[in-house]
């Protein structure tokens, strides 16, 4: 749920990167923070939660337009999946405006992907959100490992496993070298902002 900050004339919204442990969600954010230096505000907050770190920074997606003359500020987060981090997850996921689900293309992680997606649906439901309605984009990460001989799930297989019902935009990626990261982010931002426009029922961006 986007927050309107009248003092700064900004609309703040939340985009969360979610996925099974070590799938590359933190890599995505680190790449974005390193690369889009003009858009990033301030340092990245990094918390040493067990397993997957929790990352956060502010992002100004310039060039995607304003809403009613207000700048848009996107808060980018990754969130740890462990059951015990419920307070952290609640703060991050409650009122989330867009989600990027990062799936691990390694064949051995197939089940973990599915479980993580199921967890996402459950967590969203806890906060009154529906995974079918929340702006969602998928990323099939670690495609580069195929070249090193690691058995990967094919894109078709992953689409079948994860995206058959949801039917959201999905992008292959190798976050370690940045491939697919920008496309995923752009699609996620567009989807999120479109949803925001509709939610606020305001006029077209200027």
């Amino acid at each position: 749920m986007a927050v309107f900050n009248p003092k700064k004339r900004e609309i703040e919204c939340k985009l969360v990167y979610y996925g099974p442990g070590r799938c590359g969600k933190t890599t995505n954010l680190e790449w974005i923070h390193r690369t889009f230096t003009k858009n990033v505000v301030g340092k990245m907050v990094s918390i040493n939660t067990d397993g997957d770190r929790t990352l956060f920074f502010d992002f100004l997606p310039m060039g995607l337009g304003k809403i009613r003359g207000c700048e848009i500020r996107v808060q980018l987060y990754t969130v740890p999946g462990q059951v015990k981090y419920s307070a952290t997850r609640k703060l991050v996921l409650k009122g989330v405006d867009g989600v990027v689900f990062v799936a691990d293309s390694m064949a051995v992680r197939r089940e973990k992907n599915a479980l993580s997606l199921k967890d996402l649906a459950t967590n969203l439901k806890e906060y009154g959100l529906n995974i079918f309605k929340v702006p969602l984009v998928m990323q099939f990460n670690k495609r580069d490992l195929g070249a090193e001989g690691v058995p990967l799930l094919s894109i078709e297989q992953m689409q079948r496993d994860l995206n058959r019902q949801l039917k959201v935009p999905a992008f292959p990626a190798s976050a370690l070298n940045g491939e697919g990261v920008r496309d995923t982010l752009k699609a996620a931002l567009e989807s999120t902002l479109k949803h925001l426009h509709q939610e606020m029922r305001w006029a077209q961006p200027t």
Partner: peptide, 16 residues
């Protein structure tokens, strides 16, 4: 610390 750092750190400590 920045505000978000404090919040996320605090919540992590609470969860842990």
């Amino acid at each position: 610390h920045s505000r978000m750092q404090l919040i996320l750190d605090g919540l992590k400590m609470l969860d842990d």
